[in-house]
Design a protein around this nucleic acid. Structure first.
Lengths: 137, 137
DNA sequence: GTCAGTAATGTTATACTATAACAGATTTGT
DNA sequence: ACAAATCTGTTATAGTATAACATTACTGAC
């Protein structure tokens, strides 16, 4: 872990911390309404409380939205706050999801932005299919 | 009603052709309900009629779903039915959208699949930002 | 300290996106 | 022609997200 860049969860509001802790405790993506249901006991009552927390966490790079399944997952890399470019690899059978963040992905997006003359703000790369385990069973 | 008249040379059903023609006439992505509203006059009445047509058109590679904006756009390349790998570059200001489909994109996805030991079924790559025009105005 | 201004949070209501379940119509193989 | 399978239409409902406003909490000047 890169201490210099890592931020703990102490600067988060109560709701943000509740959502963040839940997403970190699960390794899988959760929908906003799954989060809502899980957090009803601890004071979250309305969708907007969840969506506002998610919005902030996403802007901080701590949470990603997986667009193709409308779900949210804790960033598995401490460095995402800096890099901001990741890819998700999703098994459609076992629903396991892997977050990939390396140089080849960053430079692919950089190249695409240059090629299309874009000032890149946000990217998402999602690959669906069968994972290694599910291909052979 | 004489169905054959509407089908012409195409292998599409009436509803599929209506949706396809609309998406081709617009160059921008449309939401399912925008499509529904546009096609009410010609007999489309329910969301499912639109969604079923879209599902088929997507499976044929003629239409893409742009995940991050929950919208649908006609494929701008005849080759997508074969390649199946494209990227969307979306300007968040003018909402112009460009579909990119070249060898570098295909091989990026291929490499990602190999690296993660996935049997790839579907991918989506979406880059948001400001287009060349909007950066300078 | 207090009080106005600002920001954050809570709440209700509603808009937008998508599919389940069943009914009716059409096509197809025999 | 007729049953089985498929396609299409319709109603109802599930799932995702935000607008609008009320309330509370924080901040800084005085």
């Amino acid at each position: 872990m890169n201490i210099e860049f890592y931020q703990g969860n102490s600067d988060l509001s109560v709701n943000q911390k509740l959502v963040m802790d839940l997403l970190e405790s699960q390794k899988r993506p959760l929908s906003a309404y799954m989060i809502l249901d899980e957090l009803r006991d601890v004071g979250i009552r309305a969708p907007l409380q969840v969506y506002r927390a998610l919005e902030k966490l996403i802007s901080m790079g701590k949470v990603h939205r997986v667009e193709s399944i409308s779900a949210f997952i804790a960033c598995s890399h401490m460095s995402c706050e800096k890099l901001g470019v990741t890819a998700f690899v999703i098994c459609d059978r076992c629903e396991n999801i892997e977050e990939v963040s390396d140089q080849s992905i960053s430079s692919f997006i950089t190249d695409l932005a240059i090629k299309t003359k874009m000032k890149a703000a946000k990217s998402n790369i999602e690959l669906h299919g069968l994972c290694n385990t599910c291909q052979t069973s």
